[in-house]
């Protein structure tokens, strides 16, 4: 194998798979978004008609889509800072000591990240239940009236978001913890010699050196929250009255519940463009930061 050919051999299999299962489907979705594809169309392609951009026009007039979009903005605004700051905080604290006790604690913080979504739905539905849930029972012990965790339109957003924050921190804590351990000891010692206290060392040594890891965590978290789906899907099914429906969930419902695949594909493409734009903006901003 020549050196010129080598990179293609290395990259080839992965690119082939990504192209087949990542890129090609989104192109298909792009085409489908220009049709009236529904279940009948899936069964017999002759039933499909081109409808131009009318799916997009309909989408931007659909109040449910706008509601889902604003919900998603809310979830991103709530979730991303919470996940990043919480992960960073816990990672900093966990990094304080390398003793066995601290190491043992890591596993507990990682548990939510390894719990499958079906299990999450079971446990959290139970915890949140208005009449029979554990949370309201504990609150009732101190005389608080039942809280409608998943039924109050505003509160439900926070409740669903909380579960996702809970689930989202584990992996990020590990990534940030790893990055912290990669910072050479000498840096801290030098800072200590200069008379920096604990907080100053964290602020002026640790955080700047973590910037790349933090950037990575922020970008992946942001992408994840823009695609927010699992938690509202299993906990509220987007309710009450659409108040926890994210764009992904909206797409899913239009597609699989409503069999409107053309319409759902238009929503998909809009979501994809939003995610790509936000991610590219972040990359651009970071580049400017570095310059």
């Amino acid at each position: 194998m020549t050196r010129r050919l080598a990179p293609y051999v290395f990259v080839g299999p992965a690119m082939l798979l990504l192209a087949t299962f990542g890129v090609f489907p989104i192109l298909v979705a792009g085409l489908v978004s220009l049709t009236n594809m529904n279940l009948g169309g899936l069964a017999r392609w002759s039933n499909i008609k081109w409808v131009g951009l009318s799916n997009y026009a309909k989408l931007f007039r659909d109040p449910d889509f706008w509601q889902a979009l604003w919900n998603t903005v809310f979830f991103v605004g709530l979730g991303v800072p919470c996940v990043v700051l919480l992960s960073l905080g816990v990672a900093l604290l966990l990094n304080r000591s390398q003793g066995p006790f601290f190491r043992a604690l890591r596993a507990f913080y990682f548990v939510p990240a390894i719990t499958g979504i079906v299990a999450i739905s079971l446990v959290w539905s139970y915890l949140y239940n208005t009449q029979f849930g554990l949370l309201n029972y504990l609150l009732s012990l101190v005389g608080v009236k039942p809280v409608q965790w998943l039924s109050d339109p505003t509160l439900a957003k926070f409740s669903v978001g909380l579960v996702a924050v809970w689930r989202g921190t584990g992996l990020n804590i590990i990534i940030l913890l790893a990055a912290l351990q990669g910072i050479p000891r000498d840096y801290y010692e030098a800072a200590a010699l200069d008379g920096a206290n604990g907080w100053q060392r964290t602020r002026f040594v640790t955080v700047p050196l973590l910037s790349y890891a933090l950037f990575f965590v922020t970008v992946t978290t942001l992408i994840g929250w823009l695609q927010f789906f699992d938690e509202p899907f299993v906990l509220t099914d987007g309710g009450p009255l659409g108040h926890t429906t994210s764009v992904s969930l909206f797409i899913y419902k239009e597609g699989f519940r409503g069999s409107q695949f053309g319409y759902a594909s238009a929503g998909s493409l809009v979501l994809f463009v939003i995610i790509a734009a936000v991610t590219l903006l972040q990359l651009r901003l970071r580049r400017r930061d570095l310059e």
Partner: peptide, 12 residues
Amino acid sequence: VPKNGDFDQTQG
């Protein structure tokens, strides 16, 4: 009628 959507009919 309860106004919460997560009312459990069996337990209720």
